[in-house]
Design a protein around this nucleic acid. Structure first.
Lengths: 228, 228
DNA sequence: CGGGTGCTTGATACCGATCAACCCACGTGG
DNA sequence: CCACGTGGGTTGATCGGTATCAAGCACCCG
């Protein structure tokens, strides 16, 4: 369920390009790489649970991880979907002893794992590590605030349109094509929708020139999509 | 509309107890206090608008500030309500040139204002400033993630119950009393509800022993409220 | 007394969750 | 080769929750 491995070259190459590590001095980078452990998980494996005591934070190398909470009836709601390069539980570095949500591999996943305490200590010494943490937190905070605003302002088709425009990378083409990086059910959770609602949103976007075939989405008129 | 003042003793006393400044070395504290400006706003004054170029970040000394976005039809949604001690726009320290939302005084307000660039520079020099920034970001991120989870998991009465339990401070009393720190319409926005929905939520909580009189809320049975 | 503001209440409409049925692609084993 | 099961996705019917619009109420202040 959770194979811990030595850091191999391929994983290392991914890891050092990650936002968290990309801008460090060679000194800090070296010390962080010394303390990293890599672990793999199968789809649906649980990485940790809400309220469980927290010793590590993670950086996703490949695959996607779902962060979610449960209400008393056992209904799940996704809070965040973490993909390659994203850090998770980084907010525990300076506050909190326990994880604040459940984390589950949405598919086979490799993660870099750091001991919170050791990174804390390193950040006390090395300014660039503190700065890297600030940047991770900032990015994460901004996207989470966007999420609140979108949840409160947008209907299902608008969220999907917004997501597609985001994915196809702000190029000013008339048409575009997007390949979803994960299952539709995961996208539904990310957007705060039930899978059925996502499906209906896609079909309501057909009139705006959106064609869905499996994971591949064709957008015939980008500017029309912006009007939704 | 925006009186800029010298820092007086009362404001200074509030400011130094603020989470952002509370744990600094006297050296860093001194340098930050040197660059602070205090400004007052009347209710409904706009502090800044989305996409406006950003030079300052703020710390609330008294009153409440609404952060919100608009959709194309002009509908508003609150992203966050900032009260005394909260920082706002702190996420712009390391990323972004423009404000990401509108900010409006919900009532008469005093704010401490810092130039982003000067704080950035100071954080490069002084580790405890960087650490204070990390703590602000962490607190803010956690509460924003909670907000996403609550929006997605809870109904209106549940959100209100949750808020009340939060306010009455986790004491294990059978009954409690809460005084809202601001108008109900502001609370509605904070919880992602229309004012009418908040009103209905309160009246649906009557059967759980919640009595509302103006801003004062009586809770006759705290544990019953937890079951909602 | 008149008018404003904040809040509540009622009627209605809409959006999305939920439940159930079905479809399709794929893999497995007889 | 086909019967079967499984998992992901779509579609339809229904229900519930909340937004919206409109009206009325309570309070404050001039």
């Amino acid at each position: 369920m959770n194979k811990s491995l030595k850091l191999n070259t391929r994983d290392k190459n991914i890891l050092v390009k990650t936002p968290f590590l990309a801008n460090l001095s060679s000194q800090s980078l070296y010390r962080l790489l010394e303390m990293v452990a890599v672990s793999g998980y199968e789809a649906r494996d649980v990485l940790f649970r809400e309220n469980q005591s927290a010793d590590y934070f993670y950086c996703v190398l490949s695959g996607y991880v779902r962060l979610y909470r449960l209400n008393k009836d056992g209904r799940e709601a996704d809070i965040r979907i973490c993909g390659p390069g994203d850090t998770l539980a980084e907010c525990l570095l300076y506050k909190g002893e326990t994880y604040r949500y459940n984390a589950q591999a949405a598919e086979p996943v490799t993660l870099a794992r750091f001991e919170l305490q050791r990174v804390r200590d390193l950040a006390e010494e090395e300014k660039d590590v503190a700065k890297a943490i600030i940047q991770c937190l900032t990015t994460h905070l901004m996207s989470t605030m966007d999420c609140v605003a979108n949840d409160r302002l947008q209907t299902a088709p608008q969220r999907v349109a917004h997501y597609l425009l985001d994915q196809c990378g702000h190029e000013e083409c008339a048409s575009a094509s997007v390949r979803l990086p994960f299952q539709k059910s995961l996208l539904a959770g990310k957007l705060g929708l039930a899978p059925e609602a996502l499906s209906r949103a896609f079909s309501s976007l057909r009139r705006a020139g959106v064609t869905v075939r499996g994971r591949v989405i064709q957008i015939s008129d980008v500017s029309a999509l912006k009007q939704i």
